[in-house]
Design a protein around this nucleic acid. Sequence first.
DNA 1: CGGGTGTAGTTTCAATTGAAACTAGTGTAG
DNA 2: CTACACTAGTTTCAATTGAAACTACACCCG
Lengths: 153, 153
Amino acid sequence: MPNSVKKKLRLQDYLPYRLSVAANAVSNLIARAYEDRFDLKIPQWRLIAVLADEGPLTPQGLCERTVMDKVTVTRAAQGLIERSLIKREPNSSDGRSHRLLLTASGERLHEQVAPLALEYETQLLAGIDQREIKMLERQLRRLEEVAGELSRR
Amino acid sequence: MPNSVKKKLRLQDYLPYRLSVAANAVSNLIARAYEDRFDLKIPQWRLIAVLADEGPLTPQGLCERTVMDKVTVTRAAQGLIERSLIKREPNSSDGRSHRLLLTASGERLHEQVAPLALEYETQLLAGIDQREIKMLERQLRRLEEVAGELSRR
DNA sequence: CGGGTGTAGTTTCAATTGAAACTAGTGTAG
DNA sequence: CTACACTAGTTTCAATTGAAACTACACCCG
């Protein structure tokens, strides 16, 4: 593109806008589903998903894997502990920290939520072919990375 | 895919998660830029962008075009009115409503923000070819639409 | 060791959000 | 007309968010 061609700005076609709108629509859908059926907020659901997938982790580790603030992790964990879906164990290697892990009932809950989560994903992606899905995922990761770099300047 | 193949759930590969993370990274980047340089919040910037593109609109019209709540629009507009970037005119055809439009200084501000906005978009999409960009946009619109439909049941 | 600097997690507080209540004007049916 | 149901926009209130302060422990240096 010759750089003399100035693109006009239309919010409707502006990528950050489209991205935000799409993400909100999807988030709201899923948030309502988990809230209604399992009384889980999204941060709580994320902790459960990660703990089920990776096993015990410190809050720190959960922050990294969920890209959530440590405050958000603390609070999500408190809620789950109250419901005995996860529990704490001391962290022998660092007394400031602790390990969080699913209880048996947390695991059972996860076994219920996971299929629903996958079902939503399937519905959302229905009619998009496998190749495009891969590409979409790649681009989302790339956007995240580039945005991260730009903001670190 | 034979439906006996059960996909395992990994948060890292879960589309709604990736979408949310990417959108947050991009939003935060842009939000900081506008805030720092122009003292604009994202809802305010959206109003300006739409008014510059489409001319005077009612709050209602702005809700539709920005996919924001009417409360959010009211508040964003209040802030802009205080700074005289937009103004109100009575709506002759409906006394409950009014029209919002950019002032001269609002237009000047828009002329400053728009190039920055486009520059960010360019940076974010750098290295993705035109065809893939179109596809990404199409998929984001589709996700939004499907999510909307699913939530309306 | 003991003092100082750094880090993990929690708490506090102020800002942002959106649902629900509210206000004022519209439009229609009798 | 005028009463009633409805809609546009604003305000109120409670929930969510994250930055900053705080607490408790870790780790390094002399």
